[in-house]
Structures are given as structure tokens and as C-alpha cells.
Design a protein around this nucleic acid. Sequence first.
RNA 1: GGCUAGAUGGCGGAACGGUAAACGCAGUGGACUCAAAAUCCACCGUCCUUAUGGGCUUGUGAGUUCGAAUCUCACUCUGGCUACCA
Length: 820
Amino acid sequence: MSYNPQVIEEYWQTQWEEQKAFLLEPHSTKEKYYVLEMFAYPSGNIHMGHVRNYAIGDVLARYKRMQGYNVLHPFGWDAFGLPAENAAIKHHTHPFEWTMSNIATMKQQLKRFGYSYDWDKEVTTCLPDYYKWEQLFFIRFLEHDLVYRRNALQNWCPECQTVLANEQVKNNICWRCDSPIQQKELTQWFMRITRYAEELLQNLDTLTGWGDNVREMQRNWIGKSVGSEVNFDVEGEENTIAIFTTRIDTLFGVSALVLAPEHPLLREWEKENTELHKECQAMLALSQEERGNPQATYGISTGKYALHPITNERIPIWISTFVVGTYGTRAVMCVPAHDERDFAFAMKYDLPLRYVILPPQGLDSFSKPYIDEGILHESGTFSGMQSQEAKEAILSFLENDGKAKKTVQYKLRDWNISRQRYWGTPIPVIYCEHCGIVPEKEENLPILLPTDVPMRSDGKSPLPYLDSFVQTTCPRCHAPARRETDTLDTFIESSWYFLRYCNPHNTKEAIDKQAVSALMPVDQYIGGIEHAVMHLLYARFFTMALNDVGFLDGIREPFVNMLTQGMVLKDGAKMSKSKGNIVEPSIMIDKYGADTVRLFCLFTAPPEKDFDWSDSGIEGSSRFLHRVYALYELYKDILSPCAPASSSLDMCTTAIAKELCRKEHSVIKKYHEDMARLQYNTTIASIMELVNMLYKYKDDIMQKEYHSLLSSSYATLLVLLAPYTPHITEELWHRIGHTTSIHNEAIPQYNEEALRRDEYTIAVQINGKMRGTCLAPADSTQEEYIALIQESGAFTKYLADKEIQKVIVVPNKLVNIILS
RNA sequence: GGCUAGAUGGCGGAACGGUAAACGCAGUGGACUCAAAAUCCACCGUCCUUAUGGGCUUGUGAGUUCGAAUCUCACUCUGGCUACCA
């Protein structure tokens, strides 16, 4: 009988489901291990990226379970979001129907892969028993001033017809639909993530189980810079202008102050200066792209002057497009001699250059800015100081007059969580003419998202037009009032689902503190690099904030280890419908079986690298599993159901037996080492070596004295392979005669004794150059090695009659002879 | 521009500072077969050589070391993130 994966896989999947084989054990004394893969957006079908992501997680979950851990390995659905709305309009259905039917389809597809999820922990975010808790979080956050409402220019995606958070805009393009972003003034709800900027930054140093690339991306996004705020008095007015600089040591080089058109003082000045007003309007109307283009930078003088805080010199005040209107004090000091941008601006408008910092060896060119630190020059009493020293001296000099202070700035902005969309969590807030903004009463939660609404063909959210939803009464004064019709950003759902997994059926609390303290933090999180800033930053922030409003105790960082897996490509390009290079997972299962697809995804590339799908490559993985199966057919008459790694060198009488025994144990050794690093590809490679050896010596293995060695090796092979290809290994395990599941077996440890050799092949180097090998007894001494090498004859032409100067010996491995 | 990851056969990729190229794909030859597929066996970096045996080889150039794909410096190229953040 040959290997028939479809039959085997369906049979065992049913068995495992009936036996509830992979549920978290509720009252276990075992140590816990929490394996988390990013939950899925129910787009309609599982794609190869999912298959790979979940295969990586499943191997770890199964390995840890076999190692004796109580493993939490949950799955769920990130079920709110815009595509559901668009699809519903297109297919004349409702987002709820569309989403729930996609979930059903995708769940069936996932189950065919035999992933060992605890389906009792399943979470679906578009259901009220999930999103109601977000409404409660919102109300608590509001009480703690972690949520607030503000009017400001927002990123508006005209295609999606909603605002987006800063993290969701890449290169001025919408993260979801690739449309260019516009700026629009709107009043929106924000989460005060900036309150946690410092903790989010500091903790990155402790997250040693994360990739450095992800941590650095988050550091850059948070963008901390330490500097000074310096106040310049405006000549002839009461006003002062504060600027932010990290280079207060260049203060004597200032040629102008430059304000962003957003600067509040301009709103006052432009009242009496129509020219200025016109210029400001023109600058504010520029798109983000035009504003960010250095070639298009321009400015005008306001005609006003500021006074230098030390020299009292008159400094012209300009406005320009290059000053960022949402950062720092929206004003900078322009020091052309020591900053590239200021230099370019000064060249364009003929502002004076003053070199006040010089390198120790003197300046070689006055036609470009000198941006490094150095020694102060023409800077009053500070001349001659080093930059570092001068920064402190100038700051403390000005601090005494209240003209400067040390400050810290972050690039991180508060998180805009309002979305002008239908398919999301309703924001539990009511606008009352008498009481203003009033949060919904907690006992009224959940505020249900109405599901019996027809979708609008113009793509707008139906909620503002739905009187039964909008019209309500004020929870405080009971007067007629209006409900908020924006919904929450769907990134809120993914910011706490890993906490809900700990006990998703708790109807009394959002987060089951007892379950969370037993199961959190997540020991290994696995997902795509595209979430390095967005989701991973929000989830860290949310966990901290939930602590501070009382929903959590003590867990401030949710993810101990983070693996960002590479993309699945086809012919070097990301799989996409438009390119037509999609490989359908279910078709691959029909053709090869789930075990083969899983194995191929894990074998071809290390998890963190991109993985290029190849149709001939998967044939190789399929061939390998057929070989594993055929080994059973070959040896079935002599295989007995024994424990893995029960062989030892003592029972081996021949060289081949010893070699086989050593291989068995060295594979186990490598297996554990590579598993610890999540190096699945090399683990599989070494298992393949064992299979190759069981074929190579088949004539010997058929002999009686090999039977117990074979049974041990084959059991080891199956057990090691079980996390990767759970179905075929379970099938063969039972065929050998075992009656319990292979997935309850312990993965064996290797036996140091079994790795012992009597002789080693030694690499022989002469003057550091590889010249051949020789066979030497184990643990030979330097003298013995040299005697062997001299006697062997193979090296005489190199040794000739030269004298040995020095010998380096790496025991049982290498000898390097240095001649004079 | 800044930060970051990387560069090893025809390809995907292995190599605690110690025999570079494990494992797999593709390829070549052979066995089995009426034939093909499947399977099994052997070969498979490159140059010189009949073989034996040598020389060369981990993006480029230097350095440290008895010994470097691995460490250090400089450079070239490629990917990712970010981008007038003062």
C-alpha cells in the first residue's frame, strides 16, 4: 500500500477533534507556553502567507507540547474592517453575512492543514461579546484622559472615505488601498499614546527576544530627541517665539527664525497683513508631498524681527514650507553655517553665514555647512569651548533668565481612532445639547452595531443616516441627543485579542485577570514584518494603558519573543491576484496533502527569510514523505513498537550499526539546538540524513542483529518529524503497533555516550593550509598526531626536511603544523 | 539623506574562528521497464590533468590570526523601514 495523504489526513483530523487533543489543559501543573500567530482577516480564503505563518507556529506549539508544556495555541478572526463593506456593496450582501461566511470557509480550510489550535479559545471581533469590552475600555480611557477629542488636520483617504492614523500612512499613501492621502480638518477621537512614548522606547531595550530590525523601526518611529527650547523676544511686541533645537551650541550662528505656516502667532500677525495672510494660506494649502519636497522649499520674510537672547542682535523672522507644522514648537532657528537645510534656505534668500563651530584642524571649505560638533568660535564668552560643554553652559546661562529650558521631543503622535466607516465598533459616546459629550452608561453596553442596515451604493457609512441608531437620549439629562456615528479603528481589536484568548468566554470581565496571570505573556509571537510599527506598537501601548486603568495587573509588555516571518513569493514577486501568480493552498492539499505543503513551507527557507514558491521544490518534499512511508513498507516485518532513542552503542557490534546509532543521536542533538533558534529548515535537513542512512544500509539492517536498532531509529525519526507532518507520523506510529498518539510522546534527549567514536578523521594543515586528512585514535596527544602524520607518507612532500616550529591541535578535529 | 538587514555553486540554502558548499531542487549517467512515469544507485563549484594529483573559489580591497564565509576597517551592490522631525 502506498502513501495516500488525503485519506490519512482526514482520518486523523477527525480523531484529534473527537479526542480534543490540543486544548489547553485547564488545571495543569505543567509549565505554560503561549504560542501566538497573528489572527486572520476573514478576506475569503486562506493564502500561502497564512499557511506558512501558521505552520511555523504549529511546529513550535506541537514541539512544546511534546516537551511537556501546557500549550495555549489559539486562533481568531480580525473581523471588522473596510474590505467587508466594499465586498458587501459589490456582492449585494451585508458585511456581517460576508464576514461570517468567510470565517466558516477559512476555518474549514485551516482545519485541513491539521494545525493544533485550541478552537475553544476562538475569538471573533465583530461579535458584541468581543467589541462590547472595547466600548468599556473607551469609557475608562476617557475617564483617565487616555482618550480625548480634538480638532486638527487629519490624514484623509478619499477612496476609503475615512481618516487614518499616522502609522497607517506610508509615503503619503493609504496602507490599505494605495490612494494618495489628503489633509482635512476634522474633529476626531484620539488615544494618548504619546503619554507612553518614553516607556515604549525604554522597554525596547528589554525585548531581547525581538529582532533588532523591528526594535529599531519602533525607536525611529517614536523618534526621541533631547534638546532645548529657546525663547526669542519679538522686537516691539510682548510676544516671544520659542524654538526647539538640539544644537544650542550654534546659537551665535543664527541668521533668522523660521516659522511654519501653522505657527499660532501668524494667526495674529496676518490680521493686519493681507500679504502675509495670503502666503500662509497658500503654504497651508500645499499637499504633504509638495510640502515635503526640498526642491520646492520657499519662504518669505514677515518683516518682523526677534532679539537674540544673548547678544540682543536683531534677527529677521521668516515663514517657510520646510518647517514641519506638527512637530516641536513649529519654529526653528536658522543656522546656515551648521545645517544643510538652513544652508540651502540661506543660499536662496541671501541670509548671512556665520561659522561659529570649527573642527579642531580648521575648516577646509566655506561653501558648505559644517554640521559636526567642534570648538566654539565668535560665540562671546563661550568661544573656545567644546560643543558638548557649550551646550550645557549656554543652556544654564539662559535658564537663569528663563529664556531656555531643556526639553525632549518625540515624533510619535497621538493615535487617531475615529473612522467614518460602518463596519467597526460603535464609539460609546452621545452628544447632548445641554451636557456636551457624554459617555454611554456602562450598564447600557454593548452599543450594538445595527446589522439590519442596507449598505449605501455611494460607499459612505449608513450609520449617520440611520435615525434608529443616531437618535437617542442623553444618559445624563435624558433630553433627546445624538449618538456618535464614527466607529473605532480596527487596530483596537488587534491590540488586546491575545489577552481575550486567555478566557474568551468570560461574560463578566473583558480580561480574566486570573487566566491572564497564568498564561501571559505570549512566549512566542509570529507574524509579518508589515506590522512592525503599526500593530506591534499599538498592542504594546494598549497593554500598558490597560494596566493603568485597572484591567490588567503587572504585565506591561505582552510579547516576550517576536519572530517576523518573510513573505511568500512566486517567481520573485509577492503573490497577488493582479499578477496572477497565486498558488492556492487547497489545490496543493488536493495534490500533495497537507503534510507535504507544511513541510515544504518550512524546509525551503529559514522562517524569517522570504520564501519563493517553486513547483518542483514541493515535489522534493512530497518525495521525502513517500520515502518515509516506504521505509515502513520496507521494514514492516521487522519493526517493533519501541521507544525512540532506545539504542545505545553497547548493543552495536558492527561499524555500520555504530554509525547508525551515532546518527540517530546526533540528529536528536541538532534537532533540539535548531528548534531553540526556530531554524526549522536545518532540523528537517538532518532528519533527511537519517532517512537516507536507513536506506543506504538496508541490506545490513535486514539482518537480525539490527532489528532493535532499526526500531529505535525509526521511532526517533517519526517523533522528530511529528511536529512538522503530524498526520503521516501519527499513521505510521500506529501501524508500527503503538496504541497512543505520537503527539503525546516525549521528544527524546540524545545520549552523549552514543556520540562517542574510537577514531576521528583529522584535518591536517601545514602552515595553515589544508593538505589532507588522517585517521587518528580518539583523544590522541600532539606527539601521537605528529607521529601519525609523519608516518602516513601523504604529507612528506610538504614536511620534507624542514623543522617543525609550532603545532596547533584541536582535539579530534584538526592539526596545524607550522614549519620554519 | 538617516537607520537596518543582507551578498556563499545553475537555484533555495548549510557551515560554535577549525576539512566551505550539509539538505533539497535542477542537471548528467546507469539499473528496472516492450516503453514511459515512478522508484533505486552513482556523479554534480571552477580551472589544469588520462587518472593520481594539483591550482583557484564565499561581492571588492586591506587588516587581525597558526587558521577568516565567520572578527575589524574601507568600498561596491541589493532589499526593508523612514524621510525637511532642526
